[in-house]
């Protein structure tokens, strides 16, 4: 009887815990592979960005029905007409703002919360604003559970978060036709702001805005470089 009980426990563990453990291991392996093949091999070299992306379980920030594709090289729908960006774009946007310890970063458009989580692994504090309430609440729940250095607000991102300004960097994850003047004002001197330009399923350009004194300039970046044929080709 005693043996039976012991065996039952083992069988139980094998039956129920193993798959869970296996799933977790599986996701971990997928994540490592994602960082190597999609991020590092494409030229992202910033060590803190790579470490953060190895650390954050992307699948937890994705609706359950999409989780099995969490580490694929593409954006995924998260509801309300929004998407979670392709991992490479998240990595690119993170690297480009040169995040480091001591930074305060403002994010406009929390969405799934994944970008905020990646940033929270590197910087001191992330302030993130989401305008769509249900999305903001879901992201807040998971970010509150995992990070103490992330503050989530459900509000109109236009006004930024004046209370905690100025920010070392601003990440605008929701593409906008204009850059709200309050955001430029809340950017620190020497700060960087990054904005994706494109449809939910295809980001081809990123806009880097830099502020140096009174001068604000932009740089259009192409994560995927298209080189036209020339007569020499």
């Amino acid at each position: 009887m005693k043996y039976f009980k012991q065996n039952s426990v083992i069988i139980f563990l094998l039956l129920f815990l193993y798959p869970l453990n296996s799933d977790a291991q599986d996701y971990t392996m997928q994540r490592q592979s994602m960082v190597e093949t999609q991020i590092r091999n494409r030229g992202i070299r910033d060590a803190s960005t790579l470490r953060a992306m190895r650390q954050v379980p992307r699948h937890l920030y994705i609706p359950e029905n999409q989780q099995r594709w969490a580490y694929e090289d593409r954006p995924l729908p998260i509801g309300y007409g929004q998407t979670i960006s392709q991992p490479y774009i998240v990595g690119y946007m993170t690297e480009i703002i040169k995040p480091k310890k001591g930074y305060r970063v403002l994010e406009i458009g929390t969405g799934s919360g994944y970008q905020a989580a990646v940033l929270a692994e590197i910087v001191d504090h992330v302030y993130t604003i989401e305008i769509v309430e249900p999305l903001g609440l879901t992201a807040k729940a998971i970010l509150d559970k995992n990070y103490e250095n992330v503050s989530v607000k459900i509000a109109d991102g236009y006004y930024g978060w004046e209370e905690f300004a100025p920010f070392d960097a601003i990440v605008v994850t929701a593409a906008a036709e204009y850059i709200p003047p309050p955001l430029i004002e809340q950017l620190k001197d020497g700060g960087r702001m990054i904005i994706p330009v494109g449809s939910p399923f295809r980001v081809q350009q990123l806009m880097l805005v830099e502020k140096k004194g009174d001068r604000v300039s932009s740089r259009s970046l192409m994560p995927v470089r298209f080189v036209p044929f020339t007569s020499g080709d």
Binding site: R219, S220, L221, M222, R225, F226, P228, S231
Partner: peptide, 29 residues
Amino acid sequence: YNQIEDDNLYRYLDAILSSTDQSLLAEYD
């Protein structure tokens, strides 16, 4: 004030303006 990482835009705009370099346009992707 506004840099574009890909300077092909300027190159092709110049080619369009230049009547001597029309071949570049035909070859464009």
